[in-house]
Design a protein around this nucleic acid. Structure first.
Lengths: 205, 205
DNA sequence: GCGCCCATTGTGGATTTCCACAACGCCGAT
DNA sequence: ATCGGCGTTGTGGAAATCCACAATGGGCGC
């Protein structure tokens, strides 16, 4: 789903037509406020791949302000933003990209070029969603651990022997074994190596 | 060390003066060919933090071509490139950043702004060098493993028991223990967990 | 009060990991 | 021929890990 945010109705319609002719689903928004309100209301659609075509100069709040809010409020984080502008200059474009925009296109644009960029943005969206899903599953499993289990997890990830963990937590080695087994079961792993690889170089939260 | 690549001598001199007044070491190059030849000759300086100020329009090969060659030949990979241009447009700037340039600045530029960007580039350079040093150490240690030790490493990272590894490689379990111990020693770790974290989610090479 | 969850611990026994000390054969470089 | 490295293996014993089966006490929600 491509979201078009532009206050010029003829352009919105032309873009909608172009996207539909390329078999891309799209939804248009006449202002930044309208788009942000829609984002705040509909959170489920944000789990699907998508991208945003965002005009820099909007009637109400600017496109840049829309983007800043999306990021600040984690709205549709998996949807790359492509800026559209009829009056852009180099510093503006550079700053937009450095702030994390996916692309920056001047109007009038070449249809094929824009569609290519949108396809690239959708591919990026799918990548972000996959990454986010995995992180979500890991966080969900982590959330199921008790405080004590988390403590043991942290020490296991340091490579400590059960005996050392027991000493450090002031409990019996048998208890460490119990927690260790529970952590493995809840995290869906069969060994400390699998657990370590699940977290990679990240510290446990 | 900041490298200035520009065919206009007055600008090179002005930039050198500006950088020195801010206590930044710099070296100037009058053409892309000169800079590339210098890079090919002096590899040791590339282990120090640095950045490149690269004019887009050069007399011989273009700044863009210089950048492409730096990346293709892995020349000074730790040095971020900031493009300078007096005739840039939005698509050029966007493309440059999407190709991996660190920044893009139009002439005439604001002194303070340019220096800020260079400081940011030097910080990025230090980050890249640190990351590269760590990867280098890991690769160096990996290079010290025999073929057999690598095979055992791969299976250890899958979380296999020594007994399973022995079955799969058609050797005695005692032999697996020997290789395992050697892998740990050579990689500088004390446990399979430390080893797994060293590689994170990466597959062993 | 009852049930559930959490934290904790024990027994007994099996399996896995670790390693000092020892050894052999093959291959390539000197 | 000698040496060093690689791949391989054994003995014996200690330490670490794993877990079925069992249990206790405290806190919380119904």
């Amino acid at each position: 789903m491509i979201h078009v945010v532009d206050d010029e109705e003829p352009l919105r319609d032309a873009l909608a037509w172009l996207l539909r002719s390329r078999e891309l689903d799209c939804r248009t928004h006449a202002s930044g406020e309208e788009f942000l309100a829609w984002l705040a209301r509909d959170r489920t659609g944000q789990a699907e791949p998508g991208a945003v075509l965002l005009d820099v100069r909007l009637g109400g709040i600017s496109g840049t302000e829309v983007f800043d809010r999306m990021r600040a409020q984690a709205l549709a984080p998996a949807w790359p933003v492509i800026y559209l502008t009829g009056h852009g200059d180099v510093p503006m474009a550079v700053e937009a990209l450095k702030q994390g925009a996916f692309d920056f296109v001047e109007k009038p644009f070449n249809d094929n070029s824009l569609v290519d960029r949108l396809m690239a943005a959708l591919a990026e969206s799918r990548r972000r969603l996959a990454e986010s899903a995995e992180a979500g599953r890991r966080e969900e499993r982590l959330a199921g651990l008790t405080a004590r289990e988390r403590e043991v997890l942290a020490l296991v990830l340091e490579g400590c022997y059960n005996k050392v963990i027991a000493d450090r937590l002031g409990i019996a080695m048998r208890t460490v074994e119990v927690y260790r087994a529970r952590v493995f079961a809840k995290m869906g792993v069969r060994s400390a190596v699998e657990l370590a690889r699940l977290f990679g170089e990240r510290e446990e939260p």
